[in-house]
Design a binder for these strands. Structure first.
Length: 678
DNA sequence: CGTAACACGTA
DNA sequence: CGTACGTGTTACGG
């Protein structure tokens, strides 16, 4: 506790700020939910990140921070008596049912009651290989069946799993279950009956968290703990008991999941998240697991060739840049580069970062004519990026069958989008010619071809729908080139008289405003004075007045409620909206403006993905979705089914959701990902 | 070894 | 002084 106080002395201003917003939330909770107040105090303790200290210390901490009044109110309403509530937390314990033969496993699986929520927990080793499966048998008794991997690999056992917990009617529950589903596909096991994933539920309740550990949910929603969870902190030796076996750890987790499901469902219902969860997010888990399981084919020799070519050119450009600089230095070090450019060569700094003058591409672009090394450096940066991130990076991720199997994260992006890692397939280059070449290395499997479908201007269409702007809606309904139509209205010229430059500016404005861009930012991007940018912005809002009203209303509503909500009910807290810091508050306003737009587009896309997978499974087509990039899907298709698959994809994507404007879908096909061009 | 900072790729 | 991400690199503290 002394350590905490010492820390508080340093951090007091920041802590006070956090606690101020926290207090607002608790007060609101107190007013809104006077009967379910066991949640806030637990949340309070975990929010303060002082888990492990007892009630008396919590009280002292509240006291110290001058929140004694709040504490008193909480204890009064909660009947929370300091120490007792913290001390008497139940610990989850499991009684494992283990089986030694396929026959015993099959019998045990069929003997599972499967009544009420069934907790399922996979166990993995460091290499992320599945070690076995824990399935709750009797949650009250704490009985959990453990089936280890060797038994799951038996076809009879796999079939029994499919027939029991794979049954669509099972109330199957998991936590970060996608990884388990993905591993089970290898064994021919499919779990289409999944009803809820508690980590995903945690994300829907608050998408701003960085992770959703089961331990935290268990404490918050069931006031229980997992034993042995408090491993020795990093850097300290753990002199605890012998290694607990994997089966028991997974068993406890399975029980914890089954325990926490009911109150989590209640919370989701309270926030209106049930339909979003059951209709979209949960079904999406299996679709993503399938995509991850299949992976995308790569032309490995081609990829290696590209990497080697880039390496050679990198070496050449690095040498040339250092030669031009007249001094050896680490070209990848911005710190060293700054000294060369601005101290030694005396070039004019453009803008500053936290640690000194910036050396980013925009800066270097302006200095290009001032010294020969600048142009070489820009070339080096471009090639080095391609070499390291995409050349080396992609080659390192190629798996069995020359396929790359990324992870599609469903609980990361605060807007509801997906993200991809290991590798990130959402940022494979496309804009520059050289970068785009990497897409030629993403290929269809043997005897297959790729079909690529993407939504045309989906975010702008979302704006048109949300703002109900007659001008925007009219342009989309007429099927006009939207940037041309916008330019025509902004600059007051006939649509056939719009110049390339005007169209480009209109495009910049359209996308900028979805992010809350202001005149200064627009001016920077268009390389024009802020005043001129303001004129363009004013003209835009005059042409599309409903858009400005939508933006204003959205921010006002978000500020009043403390969160934003998409059309599908996806919530996002934005505490920055009540910050006393002008800059932070403005950032919050931009996030609020963007959340409904990007979020709606993400929701529509998720619906399309789920329905596309469902329609393909129902059809006799063999096509499979293998990639997703925010508004684009890539499918692997048998060439003789191309026409039929195209029809189905367009139909499903275009009708995923009824907006006030049509959803337009672009199609392309070919042997590689490069076949698609916007 | 982990983290911050910078830079830069995508929608 | 435009939103949302993930990765590679260097620098730096423990």
């Amino acid at each position: 506790i002394e350590g905490i106080y010492a820390h508080i002395d340093e951090q007091t201003p920041k802590l006070r700020e956090n606690l101020a917003t926290y207090e607002v939330n608790v007060r609101r909770n107190l007013e809104m939910m006077p009967l379910v107040l066991d949640v806030p105090i637990e949340a309070a303790i975990s929010d303060l990140q002082i888990g492990g200290i007892d009630g008396e210390e919590v009280r002292r901490l509240f006291d110290f921070l001058e929140f004694r009044a709040l504490y008193d109110r909480l204890t009064e309403v909660l009947d929370f008596d300091g120490g007792a509530a913290m001390g008497d937390i139940d610990v989850i314990e499991a009684e494992m049912i283990t089986v030694e033969s396929p026959a015993a496993a099959i019998e045990a699986l069929h003997a599972l009651p499967l009544k009420g929520p069934v907790g399922l927990a996979g166990s993995f080793n460091d290499a992320k290989e599945l070690l076995g499966l824990a399935v709750t048998s009797d949650v009250e008794q704490g009985d959990v069946l453990w089936v280890r991997r060797e038994l799951l690999a038996d076809p009879g056992v796999a079939a029994a799993v499919n027939e029991t917990i794979g049954n669509i009617d099972t109330d199957l529950c998991g936590h970060e279950i996608k990884a388990t589903m993905r591993a089970l596909f290898d064994l021919g096991i499919d779990l289409p009956g999944l009803a809820i994933d508690t980590a995903l539920a945690g994300y829907l309740l608050d998408p701003a968290e960085t992770s959703y550990p089961l331990e935290g949910l268990l404490l918050r929603f069931a006031s229980k703990e997992l034993p042995g969870g408090d491993a020795a902190p990093d850097g300290q030796l753990d002199f605890g008991e012998d290694t607990v076996d994997e089966a028991l750890l997974a068993g406890r987790r399975a029980l914890a999941i089954a325990t926490v499901v009911a109150p989590i469902r209640e919370s989701m219902a309270d926030l209106g998240l049930t339909e979003l969860n059951t209709k979209i997010e949960v079904p999406l888990i299996r679709v993503l697991a399938k995509m991850e399981h299949l992976g995308v084919g790569v032309d490995l020799p081609e990829l290696i060739r590209m990497r080697d070519d880039l390496t050679a050119e990198c070496d050449r450009l690095r040498a040339a840049t250092i030669e031009a600089a007249g001094e050896d230095f680490n070209i990848n070090s911005t710190k060293q580069l700054r000294e060369i450019l601005f101290d030694k060569l005396g070039l004019t700094p453009q803008k500053k970062t936290k640690t000194g003058y910036s050396t980013d591409a925009a800066t270097l672009e302006k200095l290009r004519d001032d010294h020969p090394m600048v142009d070489l450096l820009l070339q080096y940066r471009e090639v080095e990026k391609l070499r390291s991130t995409y050349g080396e990076g992609l080659v390192a991720e190629v798996g069995p069958g020359d396929r790359i199997r990324a992870t599609f994260n469903q609980t990361v992006a605060r807007t509801g989008r997906l993200s991809s890692d290991q590798p990130n397939l959402h940022n494979i280059p496309v804009r520059s010619e050289r970068g785009r070449n990497f897409r030629r290395a993403f290929v269809a499997g043997p005897g297959k071809t790729l079909l690529i479908a993407d939504y045309n201007q989906i975010e702008l269409r979302c704006i048109a729908h949300l703002a109900e702007d007659p001008g925007l809606i009219g342009a989309f309904e007429a099927g006009d080139d939207i940037h041309n139509a916008t330019a025509s209205r902004i600059f007051g010229v006939e649509s056939d008289a719009v110049t390339v430059e005007q169209r480009s500016k209109a495009k910049m404005v359209s996308y900028g405003l979805a992010y809350g861009m202001e005149a200064y930012g627009l001016g920077q991007r268009l390389a024009i004075p802020t005043g001129e940018a303001q004129v363009i912005l004013d003209a835009y809002f005059e042409a599309f007045p409903a858009v400005r009203k939508y933006m204003d209303d959205t921010v006002a509503e978000a500020r009043q409620r403390g969160y934003t909500e998409t059309l599908f009910g996806r919530r996002r807290q934005i505490p920055e909206l009540s910050s006393s810091n002008f800059r932070i508050r403005q950032a919050g306003e931009r996030q609020a403006m963007n959340a409904g737009i990007q979020g709606l587009a993400a929701d529509i896309f998720k619906v399309a993905l789920v329905e596309l997978d469902r329609a393909l499974e129902k059809s006799d087509l063999s096509a499979e979705v293998i990639l997703q990039v925010h508004d684009e899907v890539v499918l692997e298709v048998a060439p003789d089914q191309l026409d039929a698959t195209r029809d189905l994809v367009v139909e499903v994507m275009a009708s995923a959701f009824d907006l006030r404007v049509p959803l337009d879908v672009n199609l392309a096909d070919g042997p590689t990902w490069a076949s698609a061009k916007g």
